[in-house]
Simulated scan of single mutants.
Amino acid sequence: MTTTSERNLRILLANERKEDLRALGDVLDHLGHEVTPFAVSVAEATELIAREDPDLAFVVLDGDDEHGLALIAETVSYASGPVLVSVRKAESPETIARAADMGIMGYVDSWAPDDLQGAIDVAVRRHREEQRLSEKVAQLESALDRRVIIERAKGILMERHRVGERAAFELLRDHARSSGRRVFDVAQTVLDGHALLPPN
């Protein structure tokens, strides 16, 4: 299976040193990406994320770990896309672990074009997969919530009309068909006390 590299992304760069950001920005520009204005402070990162809505963000760790970690925390919190960390100097394992706990999608310690593009490709794909999984979980939770409501409505009908579980469900289903609504919607009205369906 062949895959294509992610190109033409809007990328936010954040670090306390603009000269580093310019150097990284030049490499990303040559790779075909659009680099947003640079963020140096945490406040600038928040403002730029809100204004530019980047597809991906790079936070460069370059000596001041606490400032870099504050940028990571803010960027991960507000960015809609994945966040990568670029490491310019040797960083302690604790710093990288803290960054990972904050939700980064990866890190790269080289600014060679192929290395940067590889890290971007992995981060974007991981982020998309995470979004798909989140959507799937939300769908499953919604389906479970609907099932709980239908089961509770069936219980009310079973008690109210002294019928079995199957007959209670058929009451819900038949009422839904005749009124052009979903079984879940009819079940919700039963729970709300607005519809106590008569037995057939």
Rank of each mutant, 00 (worst) to 15 (best):
M1A: 11
T3M: 12
T3C: 04
T3E: 12
E6K: 09
N8M: 07
N8A: 15
R10P: 01
I11R: 03
A14L: 06
E16S: 15
E19R: 08
G25E: 08
D26F: 09
V27Y: 06
L31A: 14
G32Y: 12
E34K: 15
F38C: 04
S41T: 15
S41C: 07
V42H: 07
L48M: 13
L48P: 11
A50M: 06
A50R: 14
R51A: 14
D53P: 00
D53M: 06
A57L: 07
A57P: 05
A57G: 04
V60W: 00
L61C: 05
G63L: 10
H67Y: 03
L69P: 11
A70S: 14
I72V: 15
E74K: 13
V76A: 09
S77E: 13
Y78R: 15
Y78E: 06
V83K: 11
V85G: 12
S92F: 05
S92I: 00
P93R: 12
A97F: 13
I104M: 01
I104W: 03
Y107R: 00
Y107T: 02
V108I: 13
D109N: 11
S110K: 12
L116T: 06
A119G: 02
I120H: 13
D121K: 06
A123C: 04
R126F: 06
H127E: 02
R128A: 04
E130A: 10
Q131H: 02
S134D: 04
S134Q: 08
E135N: 10
E135S: 07
K136T: 10
Q139T: 13
E141F: 03
E141I: 09
R147C: 02
V148K: 09
I150W: 02
R152G: 03
G155H: 03
G155S: 10
L157M: 07
L157V: 06
L157G: 01
M158K: 10
H161M: 00
R162D: 05
V163R: 00
E165G: 09
A167T: 10
A167W: 04
F169K: 10
L171S: 08
L171V: 03
R173I: 00
R173L: 04
D174N: 14
H175R: 15
H175T: 15
H175F: 08
H175A: 14
S179N: 14
G180N: 01
V186P: 05
Q188C: 08
Q188K: 15
Q188D: 03
G193K: 01
H194D: 12
